[in-house]
Amino acid sequence: MLFPEFEGRTGIFMGPTQVMRMEHAQARELIERMERALEEKKEKEFFAIGDTFMILIQQHNLKEEQILYPMCDQHLDPSEIVQKMENL
């Protein structure tokens, strides 16, 4: 919802939203690997993947908060976006 709105309004398709999508894909891949490690009862591997996942998510959150959200604030109308989200 937010990403297409942002891209449509700014015309920036290969910017922060692209970064976020790529990192979401990376996070999904790590979650799959964690699930596999859990199923195979590989405790050390599970925590090792979890460690990489944790750093990925923390720096991802930072990018969202420091880069994407301020840009959204600049280009989007918050009440309009919230309304659209509620209508989903």
């Binding site: 790529m22 990376q26 891949e29 690997r33 090792a48 993947i49 460690d51 990489t52 750093i55 990925l56």
Partner: peptide, 25 residues
């Protein structure tokens, strides 16, 4: 010793490498 292995994983994984080596590897 934390940043370098994370970035190696991050860039390899970002290039689409499946099961890229993790920080601990």
């Amino acid at each position: 010793q934390r940043i370098v292995p994370f970035l190696v994983w991050f860039h390899l994984s970002g290039f689409g490498l499946k099961d890229a080596p993790l920080i601990f590897e």
